[in-house]
Design a binder for these strands. Structure first.
Length: 188
DNA sequence: TTCCCGATTGTA
DNA sequence: ACAATCGGGAAC
């Protein structure tokens, strides 16, 4: 399946199909990339979603076309990155929660001040920092910017589905997806 | 304009 | 177990 095809799927399917895809950032500092190993879906009728029942200035990127990047600050400390899904006007997105580092590991380690490869991208705030994703990249579009996405060549990986992490509303929905037995996910 | 709190992380 | 830290969004 091509990236274009993946991004045209319903949000929950995108969250699953993004697993195994390669995320690349060709930055000024150099190129970093990793395999997406963990995601979460946020839907429009989902109380835990920033887009729940309304659009605001902050969440506008979630309502843009599929492939738009939504970057927001959390806890006043960290940033998280989402890939928007669905057609323009529908506020849904997939949160990138963990990557398996592939290229530019030294650059990631420099950004993260951390030498343990397992801890480089094992969380939404961690991967954003390691990949050099900035708030200014909010509204960028995948494959129309230095942020690139490449679909996997091989067959379908085995996927685990669980409840989402760190939320209180709608905490029982099984909207979290990760690659089974992958050591680079945020939590077991 | 005030107030509350979160899709987290690193340290104790 | 808990502090760090700040902007969005709702309430007043």
């Amino acid at each position: 399946m091509s990236v274009e095809e993946i991004l045209s799927l319903p949000t929950l399917e995108v969250a699953k199909a993004l697993l195994g895809c390669r995320l690349i950032h060709a930055s000024e500092e150099g190129l970093t990339s990793g395999i997406i190993v963990e995601t979460e879906a946020y839907l429009r009728d989902d109380p835990a979603s920033h887009s729940f029942r309304k659009m605001t200035a902050r969440t506008a990127p979630m309502f843009d076309k599929a492939g738009t990047i939504y970057v927001y600050q959390i806890y006043g400390v960290h940033f998280c990155a989402n890939i928007t899904t669905n057609e323009t006007g529908i506020g849904e997105a997939v949160l990138l929660r963990a990557l398996q580092p592939v290229e530019g590991i030294e650059i990631m380690q420099k950004r993260r001040k951390n030498t343990d490869i397992k801890s480089l991208c094992s969380g939404p705030g961690k991967l954003v920092e390691a990949m050099g994703i900035k708030k200014t990249m909010n509204n960028w579009v995948v494959n129309e910017s230095p942020i690139q996405l490449i679909a996997p060549a091989g067959n379908n990986p085995e996927v685990h589905i669980t409840t989402r992490i760190g939320i209180t509303l709608a905490k029982d929905l099984n909207y979290r997806f990760y690659l089974k037995n992958n050591p680079f996910i945020s939590r077991k």
